[in-house]
Amino acid sequence: MFDVYDLQSRLVEAAWPSGFEASQAKLLARLAEPYADEIRTDALGNVIVRRKGEGTKIAIPAHMDVLGLIVTDIDKDGYIRFDTIGGISSLTLLSTPFVFEDGSLAAVRAEAARIAKADNIEDFSDKRDMYADVGALGKETTERRIRPGMVAKYATHTVKLAGGKIISTPYADDLICCVSLLLALENLRDAKPENDLYFIFTAQEEVGTRGARAAAYHLEPDVCIVADVCDAIDSLSAEYPIGNKIGEGPAIKLRDGGSLSHRVIVDHLVRAAEENGIPYQFDPMVYGGTDATAMQHARGVVLSSGVSIPTRDIHSPYETVSADDVVQAGKLIAAAAQRKLEI
């Protein structure tokens, strides 16, 4: 039996930023293998896990790439200069610890005197003023370990909170949904799905949903049920609190920054939840796209919705989710996937 915390920890370990998913792809293919009719990896690195069925062709993507840094230069003093891969704000970057591919650890910093004098984060809006120090003793020492083109990820870890019900982790976005997909595959082991299913661990979502776009082009699905995170703002007092709550079940997607869910798919998910006693809420995400954005119009018409995991502090080094929501998401995806979907 898959365990949410255990899987998330392993996926965080294997994760690297967009474009560098090879080790994660290998791990996911190995984990999914016992539950698949066939598995393949395409040119962009998407891992496509098929469960054969007669009916509607459903793509179920969760992205396996994460945010991070790419080394652009080692400066004359041996400090690492970098650019970001994906959306990490300057506020998040400054003083956050990262781990590089060789295992080197470094926090992102800017000159201490500048930080002391700074009034606001806009003084650091240019990432090129920041650096990462892996214990530089000059250019040559750093160059022995680090070279341009290497990548880094958050050096934070997956931790259980509240007696194990709550998980604090880097990269809940979107590894926790890769976990949902694996749980769904496990739930479907002995099922005879009434749809043709393509579970896709997608590449390069964080840099513009690139993997999903290409996958939708060559797979030509009829339907997309995306598994991604959605904002949980239950811990904060927002003026218009339209976000989701953690622990109250997976959220059925109504829209995101680049896609409007189709009523037929939303209704299908609602029925699948109600027939199986799965708690659910609705995800009305306003900002940011998901793989549904790309899949909807990559080629022909693809009707979409999704099963989202409410997540606090998305894109930070410490995202927070409920383990129960993930277990329920695995059930909901499995239920919706095997239930006959006519469009």
Binding site: T72, R210, A214, H218
Partner: peptide, 17 residues
């Protein structure tokens, strides 16, 4: 890395490259 060439469209707008 800010420049933008045809690489972006050529490698994503079909099956992927």
């Amino acid at each position: 890395m800010r420049g933008s060439g045809d690489a972006g469209t050529l490698h994503t707008r079909a099956s992927g490259a």
